[in-house]
Design a binder for these strands. Structure first.
Length: 287
DNA sequence: AAGAGGCCCTGATAGC
DNA sequence: TGCTATCAGGGCCTCT
């Protein structure tokens, strides 16, 4: 479900609420997430204080008082909610603000704080929670991942050097987390549209000017998406239930058959499957 | 080694 | 109405 911008919105909204709060209790309803939750998962978390909520790529990292960390990935359908509990009904499904009711069928993990609880809901269970024992293990956990678009390592030369001999298409590169981390299926299409590059173009035929555009637009698109609270195409919301609005700024994603938004361009947006993911582009202005 | 494709899983929607 | 097929913000693993 979420790409870097959506995870960042969750991080921001979560951080405000849970920082310096103590975990009172943890309830696991289903251990079979992408990575099976260990039996001692609850024990490890209980009585710990949340020191900080960080993010790398599409991963949330909760820094805990005993130096270990809770790594969270939301997969395709994972969502995090903060719900109040009142004394009458400890398990009431009433969100802080905008979500009147949360369906509880797939609430796999609940983390209780003093006055509210964090609920992890994930119908497809592609997401996971993972305990990382220290900073060193965290670094190792991420060692294969490429830089984020905002990292100074990610620049024109980095892109050029990685693509220059490759037959693989440029869209797949943007989705390859070992090359660049944080971009997903929505933003890959949007970045290539702004860069005027056809998604099926082979890596080796991307020139330096185009690399520069990819570099520039990757940052631009993700930052704009964060500014607008992420993209709520299905049901993305922050932890308090607020929707994002970047879906209103999509140039190509889910716009198949509609007119290209570029002035003077007569093209219609096309949809094409590239490595099993829907890809949207304008063949008139993306060459 | 690079790259394509399958698979993990459930739910919503389209099409018959 | 009720079935079946297809698709969905991800990532890992296997096969060629």
């Amino acid at each position: 479900m979420p790409e870097l911008p959506e995870v960042e919105i969750i991080r921001q909204s979560l951080n405000k609420k849970i920082i310096q709060k103590t975990i009172k209790k943890v309830i696991v309803r289903n251990r079979n997430l992408r990575i099976k939750l260990p039996q001692n998962f609850e024990k490890i978390l209980e009585n710990q204080i949340i020191l900080d909520v960080d993010r790398f790529s599409k991963y949330l990292i909760l820094f805990l008082s005993k130096k270990n960390k809770l790594l969270i990935h939301l997969g395709m359908s994972g969502t995090i909610h903060l719900l109040k509990h009142n004394k009458k009904n400890f398990l009431t499904n009433t969100s802080f603000y905008n979500s009147p009711k949360l369906p509880d069928k797939h609430n796999h993990i609940e983390i209780f704080f003093d006055k509210f609880r964090l609920v992890y809901n994930d119908p497809r269970r592609f997401g996971f929670f993972e305990i990382i024992k220290d900073q060193k293990s965290l670094k190792k956990r991420f060692e294969k991942l490429g830089p984020e678009p905002f990292d100074s390592k990610f620049n024109m030369n980095y892109i050029y050097d990685n693509l220059k001999d490759k037959k693989k298409n440029v869209k797949s590169f943007l989705l390859d987390q070992n090359f660049i981390s944080g971009i997903g299926n929505i933003y890959a299409s949007e970045i290539l549209y702004l860069s005027k590059i056809n998604p099926i173009k082979e890596g080796k035929s991307i020139n330096k000017t185009e690399c520069k555009k990819i570099f520039k637009n990757s940052k631009l698109v993700l930052l704009n998406a964060i500014k607008r609270g992420g993209s709520s195409i299905r049901d993305f919301k922050d932890v308090l239930g607020n929707k994002g609005s970047f879906q209103n700024n999509f140039k190509v994603y889910q716009r198949e058959g509609q007119k290209c938004k570029r002035v003077d361009c007569k093209g219609l947006i096309q949809k094409k499957n590239i490595s099993n993911r829907s890809t949207f582009f304008c063949s008139f202005c993306q060459k």
